[in-house]
Amino acid sequence: MKDRDKASPGGVQTYRFKDDGTMPNHPFLPVLYYAGAIDEPARATVRFEASGWGNTWENGVYPYHHYHSNAHEALGVVRGSARLQLGGDGGRSLEVRAGDVLVLPAGTGHKRLSASEDFLIAGGYPGGAKYNVRTGEPDERHRDLEEIRLVPIPQSDPVFGPGGPLTELWRPDGR
């Protein structure tokens, strides 16, 4: 099965999370989960960069709730597996494994709950954006809510490039 077949818009799972008072989450864009979207997980950063999602890295996921108020984030599991919490304490726990990709809209809370010893994940940001790390501190909240709303919707899917599922599933009107 080709990569594109695995992550057609009908095959991408979407999750929406409301502002929980600490984790703002995105007001209208859903999290996108592409199960098994990358056949060569070790090349996740190459795939992201080829699709215009730069400032890539490989490492882990922080073990505490955090979000990025100034950038959307693509996460591709390079090896191993992990259980991640998305959307804050009241959100959703999701098991991810090598080849899976998550696309988190700006403001989406996430943290690592557990991981295999060999867990490695890659990250990338539209246009190579420099990202911040926020933890939901009350003095950041007002500024962050405005910043999240202003982050532009990417013109390219991090895995499939222009015309990929993200470009159909993320719309300015939230539909």
Rank of each mutant, 00 (worst) to 15 (best):
T22R: 13
G54C: 03
R134C: 11
R4W: 04
V12E: 10
P172S: 09
P63I: 04
P158N: 14
R112N: 14
G80T: 11
P154C: 11
E146N: 02
G99V: 05
F48K: 03
G80K: 07
R92M: 13
P9T: 05
E49M: 00
T108R: 03
G21S: 09
G88M: 07
T22L: 01
G123P: 04
P41W: 14
G80H: 09
I38R: 13
T22I: 12
P30V: 12
P165Y: 07
E140S: 05
V31T: 11
T45I: 09
G87L: 02
A50G: 12
D118V: 04
A71Y: 01
T56C: 14
V12F: 10
A7R: 02
V61F: 01
Y67F: 15
V46R: 13
P162H: 12
W53A: 09
E168H: 09
K2D: 15
S116C: 06
E40N: 15
Q85Y: 02
Q85G: 14
V77K: 05
L102E: 03
A71I: 01
V12Y: 08
F48E: 05
G60I: 03
R97E: 15
E117I: 01
D118R: 02
D118G: 04
E95K: 09
A35D: 11
W53Y: 11
A106H: 02
M23P: 01
T45Q: 03
G127M: 07
E140G: 00
A82K: 09
G164D: 00
L169P: 02
G161Q: 13
Y131C: 02
S156C: 08
E140Q: 09
G107Y: 15
A129S: 15
W53M: 02
P138K: 11
G163E: 12
Y131N: 02
A71Q: 03
P30L: 09
P172D: 15
G87C: 04
G109A: 07
G10Y: 07
R141C: 04
F160V: 00
D89C: 05
H142Y: 05
G109W: 08
T14K: 12
G99H: 03
S156R: 15
G124M: 02
P27M: 10
E58R: 14
L145H: 11
W57H: 09
P41A: 12
M23C: 13
G54A: 03
R149M: 10
L169C: 08
G54R: 01
D5H: 04
N25M: 03
G127S: 10
V96P: 01
W53N: 07
G109Y: 08
N70S: 07
A106P: 00
R79F: 02
E117Q: 12
H26R: 06
P63K: 05
Y125W: 11
